[in-house]
Design a protein around this nucleic acid. Structure first.
Lengths: 123, 123, 123, 123
DNA sequence: GTGGTCTAGACCACT
DNA sequence: GTGGTCTAGACCACG
């Protein structure tokens, strides 16, 4: 399972793990009932604390993406990938909205904000 | 002085104060040598701790936007509003970039991200 | 009475007043039973708050350099100017010692500290 | 880590901490990537509030001497010890200058000031 | 009145 | 465990 951690980012590690596993599920690279790597295995692979991986798995389970069976492991739950995409979009939407609001709060014009956005997207 | 605190946001209160005072300075609503409200006055007005306001003022001073005179008050320093605008733009840019990266990390296409952005900006 | 206030200094205004009046007394420019300017007069002359002058006069009186007669004014007390010089020297000595200790605490050699000192004194 | 707090001094505790940690870094007793004691640990050791230690650490970070990683700790940043020495010298210089100015303001001769200085340095 | 420092303890997020 | 933020209130120095 390919997960890439960028610790220089200001995004929490556990959130990076959650995001990427969600995407793997949505893409079909992880299918229903697939077995996720164990907390300890993944923590060694990514060179992060086992507690961090545990937190990511806990998040995934509480959002219904995985099911943990005590003593056996963590499995991908049945999912509606369409719904998942919508959900992820909503998160990005919320982040974009925060950035836009900050810009407006600073009195930056919508045109300027749009220019910035396009510059980053293309750059 | 109109400062609005949104404590439900995940942005620290002191940072919200800093941002908004910077903007007031840039907009010319606060001019050079203007007297900022005292720490205690503003803390009562915003219903936050005096220490929180103080932390905001400390930040503003260390960034050169204000000058504090012991026993007298806090004053707006001479500023280059152009420079300030650039700085604020950079902050928004960073936030936008984080949102875009998150979208890509989730496998959302650039077109979709752009659509989301434009929807929010227009909405 | 010539007193010069330098508000850009990081020395409290009331202390500057105290120091300079002490020196005027020591130099004989202010003699026993001379009448100091009233708090309000001096405050206008120096363009500082009357409370600040009052604080300076209070300090002078508590150290025995002046006597305040209610409804009449403030007078120079009998003083031993030799003693006064010694006292002022002790204050300067304390300040110098603090600076030296700080230098040593930072691991700066005594030679370097001395060089700094002489540079400032001559410069 | 040996840090000594003198609360009878008129120097803020957080500043004493900052000064001494800077010196430890300059002396090489704290090296790049060394882990500073946690805010809470040091606060217990020095018997001061955790906030006071935090303020010291914040100052160190904003001056570029340390790097703080959320949830992990505070680390010594790469530093130019030569530059640091110069900076510390400048601080001592400023303190010496203040003392000298005070002496002059009190009408003490430069020779007398120099004598005082040398007496203290040798004593 | 003003700002400057400090406390003791709380809650949160991250590892 | 770590740091990040916030509170409510205290005492001090300065004007």
């Amino acid at each position: 399972m390919r997960i890439i951690i960028n610790s220089s980012l200001m995004v929490p590690i556990y959130e990076q793990i959650v995001d990427q596993i969600k995407t793997l599920i949505r893409n079909g690279e992880l299918k229903e009932n697939d077995n996720l790597p164990s907390v300890r295995t993944l923590s060694k692979e990514l060179k992060v604390s086992a507690l961090t991986v545990k937190k990511a798995y806990d998040n995934l389970e509480s959002e219904g993406f995985t099911i943990t069976v005590h003593g056996k492991g963590t499995y991908v739950a049945a999912t509606n990938t369409e719904l998942l995409l919508e959900e992820q979009k909503k998160e990005v939407e919320a982040d974009l909205e925060m950035a836009i609001q900050k810009g407006r709060r600073c009195g930056i014009s919508d045109e300027d904000i749009k220019s910035l956005f396009e510059l980053i997207l293309e750059g």
